[in-house]
């Protein structure tokens, strides 16, 4: 993959994530972790190569079939990308609303999840008034609320203390136990060793598997 006419950021990257697997994605800054995730949540299309998600080639997928695929993927963006004009509750409930579910059907679930990530008191707050850690947890809650088949998280524990980091890891593992494949891009070696999951290491645009 490349951006515009720039050099290829990723090349000869080949891997397969089995359904229900749990992987970390590590590597030095600028190695292409975020680019790889972008390809996987279909924000960018590959300039060459084959990416198959849930049995579909996403490079050639027609535009109107993207939403169905994206709904099966939960994403925690590195910069959170919460919607500032909505409350924390509305932000977290967004994927369910987009799926066309009525508020009555998900209100209790969303509240429970928010309480679980420690945002029970901040439900009506808007993202600009949240701390970095709170935003991160809201972003994670939004990514997992619809129980996606695949969760992609970009530095999900970068802004929280180690205690909350462990708590969030437990959330990911719980989700994984329920059948969601997890891929977490991180610099946090403590998190990786804590989970004991295999590691995909990106370096110089190439990928190796460790563990």
């Amino acid at each position: 993959m490349r951006y515009g006419m720039g050099p290829e950021v990723l090349r000869d990257v080949s891997f397969h994530l089995a359904p229900g697997s749990f992987h970390f994605l590590t590597g030095p800054s600028g190695a292409g972790k975020t680019s790889l995730l972008k390809l996987m949540f279909m924000a960018s299309r590959p300039s060459r190569g084959l990416i198959t998600m849930f049995g579909r080639d996403i490079a050639t997928l027609p535009r109107d079939e993207l939403p169905d695929l994206r709904r099966r993927v939960g994403v925690v963006f590195q910069e959170f990308r919460l919607l500032d004009h909505l409350t924390t509750y509305e932000n977290v409930a967004l994927p369910l609303k987009i799926q066309g579910r009525t508020e009555a059907s998900y209100r209790a679930d969303v509240r429970e999840l928010l309480a679980w990530v420690g945002l029970g008191e901040r439900m009506q707050a808007r993202p600009p008034t949240l701390s970095g850690g709170e935003k991160q947890r809201a972003a994670i809650a939004r990514a997992v609320v619809a129980q996606p088949d695949l969760l992609l998280a970009d530095e999900p524990t970068g802004n929280v203390d180690p205690e909350m980091g462990k708590r969030l890891l437990r959330l990911f593992m719980e989700l994984n136990r329920l059948g969601t494949s997890i891929l977490i891009a991180t610099h946090d070696q403590a998190l990786v060793s804590e989970a004991g999951a295999p590691e995909l290491v990106l370096k110089g645009g190439r990928l190796t598997v460790r563990g």
Partner: peptide, 16 residues
């Protein structure tokens, strides 16, 4: 634009 992109990535259709 940012909101539209987030909505798209969250699986929103243009109709939504």
């Amino acid at each position: 634009r940012e909101v539209v992109e987030v909505l798209h990535l969250t699986g929103a259709r243009d109709k939504f």
